[in-house]
């Protein structure tokens, strides 16, 4: 265990935000989940007791009859904003006094940095480069992430959970988002920061970053495993496998959408366009973990090889 190496990575000034992220994201996930569960308990109570549902104010916030429904922004909101500004300024001051922004040697095109890493918030994309070619990892998938995020409100046909924390009423939406945000995006940022060393080689936390290490990764393409050698054969085989993946994921996802009565009820509300868009984005999103497993566990580089592009 090379603690010095671990400390060197964790204390690099530009990595401090990720250390902060590792603390903040679990905290806020717990903070949100705790309220979701509290709300879910109240929802369960209201569902079994229609009389209570008629009179209850339906929030877990403290409430008493006679309390005014609204409060003045001045001072009840402005004092919070003022306090937040002071706290943030204080944190920034301490942070800026304690830690210096990194400055390396002057830019030198003839001397490549190793590892040469993107800013930490793009490390997820850089890590995706291991699993997909640059046109996919650098251009198509980032665009689809953005478009997919923008499409969320238009694909979500579930009218429940509008403006309050809940898990029970939006199980699928919460799982899908947390999978994309916490597992795919943030964990890849963490992998890119803490695990990828010189040559973008996988070093476990605490392992020394050996600049001379070479990994002989005999990566194979899927058609090679099946002994397909002709270009045409590879193209057709890859196309079939990709289609197969699409079909299996689509069917599995359809099963999730029609899993129980509630899911079926929401499914009934979806338009065809909503359904197909959602399928498209889920299939695209799931291709990342599938290729991660294929690459990391089975050393498979490409599935589909054509003269124009490889996937």
């Amino acid at each position: 265990m090379d603690w010095a190496q671990l400390w060197e990575i964790a204390s690099a000034p530009d990595n401090v935000p990720i250390v902060a992220l590792i603390v903040l994201v679990p905290f806020y996930s717990w903070y949100g989940l705790r309220q979701s569960l509290a709300n879910d308990r109240l929802i369960a109570q209201l569902e079994t007791d229609p009389q209570m549902a008629k009179t209850h104010h339906r929030k877990t916030q403290p409430w008493r009859p006679g309390w005014e429904r609204e409060v003045h922004v001045w001072p009840y909101l402005l004092r919070i904003e003022f306090l937040a500004a002071i706290i943030v300024t204080f944190i920034l001051m301490v942070w800026s006094i304690a830690l210096n922004a990194p400055l390396e040697e002057p830019a030198n095109p003839t001397l490549t940095m190793n590892p040469s890493k993107a800013p930490w918030y793009f490390l997820g994309l850089q890590e995706m480069l291991v699993y997909f070619d640059p046109w996919m990892a650098g251009v198509v998938l980032p665009s689809l992430i953005l478009v997919g995020l923008m499409a969320i409100p238009y694909m979500d046909a579930n009218p429940l959970g509008n403006g309050y924390y809940t898990y029970k009423q939006r199980k699928f939406a919460i799982w899908a988002f947390c999978f994309g945000f916490l597992i795919l995006w943030l964990s890849m940022v963490v992998i890119g920061t803490f695990i990828r060393g010189p040559g973008w080689i996988w070093f476990w936390p605490g392992q020394t970053w050996d600049h001379n290490r070479v990994v002989f990764e005999a990566n194979r393409d899927l058609p090679d495993i099946f002994g397909i050698t002709s270009a045409l054969g590879k193209g057709i085989f890859g196309g079939i496998v990709t289609l197969l993946y699409t079909a299996v994921t689509a069917i599995a996802f359809h099963k999730v959408l029609t899993w129980n009565d509630f899911n079926r009820k929401i499914y009934q509300r979806m338009t065809l366009v909503q359904y197909l868009t959602l399928q498209f984005f889920i299939i695209t999103m799931m291709s990342l973990p599938v290729k991660m497993i294929a690459r990391l566990a089975f050393r498979i580089k490409y599935v589909w090889i054509t003269p124009w592009f490889n996937i």
Binding site: A107, P109, K117, G138
Partner: peptide, 20 residues
Amino acid sequence: DDQLGFWAVTVGTNMARATP
């Protein structure tokens, strides 16, 4: 204009080469 920024932007914009 240091090594950090230069190589980060080089890596970042190299992806644009591969735009379909």
